[in-house]
Structure formats: C-alpha cells, structure tokens
Design a protein around this nucleic acid. Structure first.
Length: 433
DNA sequence: ATTCCACAGGAAGCGACGGCCC
DNA sequence: GGGCCGTCGCTTCCTGTGGAAT
C-alpha cells in the first residue's frame, strides 16, 4: 500500500459516536461481554506475589545476608546478576518488604528503598531519591538546586538522627553513568555513627563491575548472587500460580501455558515475557468475545507485543530521529523501486536526511550526531547495522530495517512530518516521498 | 607495501535549561 | 537578578579502521 493510500484509509471513521448516550451504551456492551479475568493486574510483571516459585533458595540467601540489619549492624553489600525477567527485582523487593516488617515487629527501624537507575542514573538523582524517601518529619531536601555534597550531608545527618538501617536497592545499576557515584554511595557508612547503609546492586550485565577501579571494588565488599534463567517447566509453574487468582477457572486451554512458557524459555527464560504473553492473549480472547484462550490467541499476542513495542518506541522518538527514520523509509522505498538491495549505507541516509530537513525547515544535525542516532535506533531494535569496509571507498555502515517497510510506513503514517511531505509531494509530483 | 577513502566512534567542550540559593 | 549546580543535546576535533586501488 502506498503512503498516500494508507493515509486515506485512516482519515475518516465509518461510524461516529454522537452523544454521551452512545458512549454509555458502548461501555455497557464492553462491560456485558464475557470477562475472562478476575484481576488482570495479577498477570502484570510489576505485581509481586506472596509466593515466588523457584526462587526460594535466592530468597533465603538474601535474607541471610541482610539479617544483621535486625541488630543495627551493616549487612554486606550485594550484587545480583542475571538476565532480564528472571526474578532479581522480585526477590529483592520481596526480601526488602519482609525485612522491613521483621524490623517493625522487633522494634527496629529498617528502611528498604528501591531505585530504578534507568531513570535515576546519576549520583545527584539517587541522593534526591534517598532524601525524599527518608524525609518524613525531618527538615530535609526534597527539591533540586543543591549540590550533591549538600544533599549527602543532609542525608547522613537525618539518618543518624533517626538510628536506622537503610537498604538501598539500585536496580539496573549498570545504567548509572558515573562510577564515582557508586564509590560515594558505598562510603556513606564512614559518615554515619548511629545508622548504617547497605547497597544491593541489580544488573543484567555480568561484566558491569569489571570496569570499576580497585577503590570501588574494595569499598563494595560485596556478596555476589547469580540468578539462573527459568526453564520452561519452571515458567509453567509461575504462570499456573498466577492464573489461579487472576483468571476465571477453565478459561485457558490445556496447551496455552506450555506454549507461553516454551516461547519465553526460547528467549532466555524470561518470566516477564511469559506473563505479558499470557495477559495479552487473554485480552485478545476477551475482545473477540471468545470463551477460551487458545494457542491462536498466544500467537496473535506474540506478534502484537512486538509490533506495539516498536510503534511505541518510534512514536516517542524526538523529531530529528523520526526525520531520520523518514529518510530511511524513503531511501528504502527508492531502492525497492530501482530493484536494488534494501541495504543502505550511512552516507546516503545522511544525504537523504539533509534533503528532508530542508523540506520541514529543520537545521540538519552533523554527521557525527546522526551516526549516534543510527546507533541508538540499532539499540532499540529498529535497525541492524554492521561496519563494513568498501576498500578504497572507505569504511561505512550497512544498515537494514528489522521490520517490513510497509510496517514502518504504517507507523509513521500519523507522524507530523508525513503531512508536510504529502504537500510537497503533491506540489512537485515526487513519487517517492 | 603503501596509499586512500569514508566513515566509526571517543573525548572534550560549549551553551541552554531547570531549579534552587543568596 | 546573578550565581551555582547538574544534566542534556550537540559540535568539533581527533585517531583508528580495513580492504580496494595503486
């Protein structure tokens, strides 16, 4: 389907809702349809259940490491390694909550603070997270504008004033930009007299501490826990435990759980993925008013999850990166038109990008910056790129889309740039825009 | 064996920004 | 309102790369 025809198809809905009455009927119909869920939130990976199947050993190990906190002693710092979706975060949060509860029962002040370093990725941001968490009834900084030293000093004063053990869990710790941040955090105890801080570092990257200098390694003084991926049988147990409370009895066909588990085990034993797959499969079945969830729904869910992920990523890209994607789309289409390979190289993509920048009146960024964008798009799974040498014609990158061109065109269809390109296309009869 | 090309990608630095203090 | 602090997006400068051409 050409870009212009695909725009036409989405322009006008065939049926329009005119009144609040219509809307009420619409939702009545949805509510009256068969509900397969009892509680869909229980099939979300963010939900921490009361029992974590196949992680009993890790829970016990972490609990043993952290138990000195109940005597106001500093537990060892812990590094937890393992691939995504295999229960590291769940174990840390589970043990953290249990420890807080045990502290309360024994009259000890223990605080567990979970920080996701994907967003909170600098020392400064981490310190502000700590300060806002421990600030209850204390005059401590909860806003920005202070140097890291000032915030750190306020935190240590507040901690010492309230005698407590703070367990700081830094998830995705490999995202922290500055090694110095970890060094500072691991040495907080040197400033404390009454309280103690212990750190749990959670990472998918087993090599992330390799680059640390010896000062950080020694100040970490860590216990290491390595999490093994779940196998297909273990994933089945996890899913079966969740569906007992999340879904109505008998709505799942016999082979659905084994299929979800097998597909997720193929990746790397990712329980998060297995739960998403099952939840989306049930949602699709519900929307179709089917009474059972079958393998067909799981396969549809698998394709939907992947498409949704890429579309969401593309829509959230900044303007310049979307413009670059338009350049790639047009170049790809041109290559198809000329019967050439769908492989593109950096130089021609950059030239196309500069052309488009003129149309939308953007100042084109430098080739260096655009090269970074290409690497980022590769990281996001939208492109594949490999460095090749063209001999006397220099070194470059061979770039390919990971999705069909039509799919990218469809995703970019409602993009703000598309309309401008359409106007230019009509004015200049440029077939390939 | 040497030269050459078109980049890749690291490092450093700049300016803008948001949020605060004084 | 100027100064401070940390962050971010970006440019500029630079060195490295590797295979075809000479």
């Amino acid at each position: 389907m050409s870009l212009i025809t695909s725009i036409e198809t989405v322009s006008e809905p065939t049926h329009q809702l005119h009144s609040l009455h219509d809307v009420q009927h619409l939702f009545d119909r949805i509510l009256q349809s068969d509900h397969l869920f009892i509680n869909r939130d229980l099939l979300r990976s963010t939900y921490i259940p009361e029992i974590l199947p196949h992680r009993e050993q890790e829970i016990t190990e972490l609990a043993n490491i952290l138990s000195p906190a109940l005597d106001y002693a500093a537990p060892s710092n812990v590094i937890m390694y393992g691939l995504p979706g295999i229960g590291k975060t769940a174990v840390a949060k589970y043990v953290g909550a249990e420890l807080e509860a045990a502290g309360k029962a024994h009259g000890k002040n223990i605080t567990f603070l979970y920080v996701n370093c994907q967003l909170v990725n600098t020392l400064h941001k981490i310190l502000y997270d700590i300060s806002s968490h421990i600030s209850n009834n204390h005059n401590i900084l909860t806003t920005t504008g202070f140097s890291s030293d000032v915030v750190l000093s306020k935190i240590t004063t507040c901690l010492d004033a309230t005698r407590q053990v703070l367990i700081l869990c830094l998830d995705e710790a490999d995202r922290i930009k500055d090694d110095h941040a970890l060094y500072t955090l691991t040495r907080i105890n040197e400033h404390l007299h009454q309280s103690r801080v212990s750190i749990i570092l959670v990472s998918n990257d087993i090599f992330f501490t390799e680059s640390f200098d010896s000062r950080i390694k020694s100040s970490l003084n860590q216990e290491i826990m390595v999490f093994d991926p779940y196998n297909a049988d273990q994933l089945q147990d996890i899913l079966r435990a969740r569906i007992k409370t999340a879904l109505k009895p008998g709505v799942i066909e016999e082979d659905v759980i084994p299929l979800c588990s097998a597909l997720s085990a193929q990746e790397h034993g990712d329980a998060r993925r297995a739960l998403d797959l099952l939840r989306v499969a049930v949602e699709l079945a519900e929307r179709k008013h089917d009474h059972n969830v079958t393998n067909k729904h799981v396969r549809l869910a698998q394709s939907k999850i992947e498409k949704d992920r890429i579309a969401e990523v593309i829509h959230s890209l900044p303007g310049q990166q979307r413009l670059l994607l338009h350049a790639i789309r047009i170049l790809h289409r041109y290559n198809d038109h000329m019967g050439k390979q769908s492989v593109m190289i950096t130089g021609e993509i950059y030239n196309q990008y500069v052309e488009l920048s003129k149309i939308v009146r953007y100042t084109p960024l430098t080739p260096r910056r655009v090269a970074d964008f290409i690497s980022q798009l590769e990281t996001l799974g939208i492109l594949t790129a490999r460095v090749i040498s063209k001999g006397r014609h220099g070194q470059t990158k061979e770039i390919q889309l990971t999705m069909p061109l039509a799919e990218l065109a469809h995703i970019l269809n409602d993009d703000e740039f598309t309309q401008e390109f359409q106007q230019v296309k009509m004015k200049n009869q440029m077939k390939l825009l």
